[in-house]
Amino acid sequence: MNNNVIQQIQQTSYDLLMMSESEYPFEVVFWSGEGQESLTNQKLLQLTNHPLETPIETVELDYFFRNCAEEQEWHDELQKQNVQKFQTLIKTLKDNLTNIKVYRLGSISIDVYIIGKTAANDLAGVSTKVIET
Results as ranks from 00 to 15, higher is better:
residue 2 N to L: 03
residue 2 N to G: 10
residue 2 N to H: 02
residue 2 N to A: 06
residue 3 N to R: 12
residue 3 N to G: 11
residue 5 V to Q: 00
residue 5 V to N: 01
residue 8 Q to L: 15
residue 8 Q to T: 11
residue 9 I to L: 14
residue 11 Q to E: 15
residue 12 T to Q: 15
residue 12 T to I: 08
residue 12 T to R: 10
residue 13 S to F: 09
residue 16 L to P: 03
residue 17 L to Y: 09
residue 19 M to C: 09
residue 19 M to F: 01
residue 19 M to R: 14
residue 20 S to K: 04
residue 21 E to H: 13
residue 22 S to K: 12
residue 22 S to G: 13
residue 23 E to W: 12
residue 25 P to F: 04
residue 26 F to T: 07
residue 27 E to G: 14
residue 28 V to G: 02
residue 28 V to Y: 10
residue 28 V to P: 04
residue 29 V to D: 00
residue 30 F to T: 04
residue 30 F to E: 05
residue 30 F to Y: 15
residue 34 E to G: 00
residue 34 E to C: 07
residue 35 G to F: 00
residue 36 Q to D: 11
residue 36 Q to R: 14
residue 39 L to E: 00
residue 39 L to G: 09
residue 40 T to M: 02
residue 41 N to F: 04
residue 41 N to T: 06
residue 41 N to W: 07
residue 42 Q to R: 13
residue 45 L to N: 06
residue 46 Q to I: 12
residue 46 Q to F: 06
residue 47 L to T: 00
residue 48 T to N: 11
residue 49 N to P: 05
residue 50 H to G: 06
residue 51 P to F: 05
residue 52 L to M: 14
residue 52 L to F: 09
residue 53 E to S: 14
residue 53 E to Y: 02
residue 53 E to C: 02
residue 55 P to H: 07
residue 56 I to L: 13
residue 56 I to K: 05
residue 57 E to D: 12
residue 57 E to W: 00
residue 57 E to N: 14
residue 57 E to H: 13
residue 58 T to M: 03
residue 59 V to N: 04
residue 59 V to C: 06
residue 59 V to M: 07
residue 62 D to M: 09
residue 63 Y to I: 12
residue 63 Y to M: 06
residue 64 F to I: 08
residue 66 R to A: 11
residue 69 A to D: 10
residue 69 A to T: 08
residue 73 E to I: 04
residue 73 E to L: 01
residue 75 H to V: 00
residue 75 H to F: 06
residue 76 D to Q: 03
residue 76 D to M: 01
residue 76 D to E: 10
residue 77 E to A: 12
residue 77 E to S: 10
residue 78 L to R: 15
residue 78 L to T: 06
residue 80 K to E: 06
residue 82 N to T: 13
residue 83 V to T: 10
residue 84 Q to E: 13
residue 85 K to V: 00
residue 85 K to Y: 10
residue 86 F to L: 07
residue 89 L to R: 04
residue 89 L to C: 09
residue 90 I to W: 02
residue 91 K to E: 15
residue 92 T to S: 14
residue 93 L to D: 02
residue 95 D to G: 10
residue 97 L to V: 08
residue 97 L to Q: 06
residue 97 L to I: 05
residue 98 T to E: 14
residue 98 T to A: 15
residue 98 T to I: 11
residue 99 N to Q: 15
residue 100 I to S: 07
residue 100 I to T: 09
residue 101 K to G: 03
residue 102 V to R: 01
residue 102 V to K: 01
residue 102 V to N: 08
residue 102 V to H: 02
residue 104 R to A: 04
residue 104 R to W: 01
residue 105 L to K: 08
residue 106 G to E: 02
residue 108 I to D: 13
residue 108 I to S: 08
residue 111 D to R: 14
residue 111 D to I: 12
residue 113 Y to Q: 10
residue 114 I to L: 00
residue 114 I to C: 02
residue 114 I to P: 05
residue 114 I to Y: 03
residue 115 I to Y: 03
residue 116 G to S: 06
residue 116 G to K: 05
residue 117 K to V: 05
residue 118 T to H: 00
residue 118 T to I: 05
residue 119 A to H: 12
residue 120 A to F: 05
residue 121 N to Q: 14
residue 121 N to H: 09
residue 123 L to G: 02
residue 126 V to W: 07
residue 127 S to C: 13
residue 128 T to P: 04
residue 128 T to D: 04
residue 128 T to N: 12
residue 130 V to R: 11
residue 131 I to P: 03
residue 131 I to E: 14
residue 131 I to Y: 13
residue 133 T to W: 15
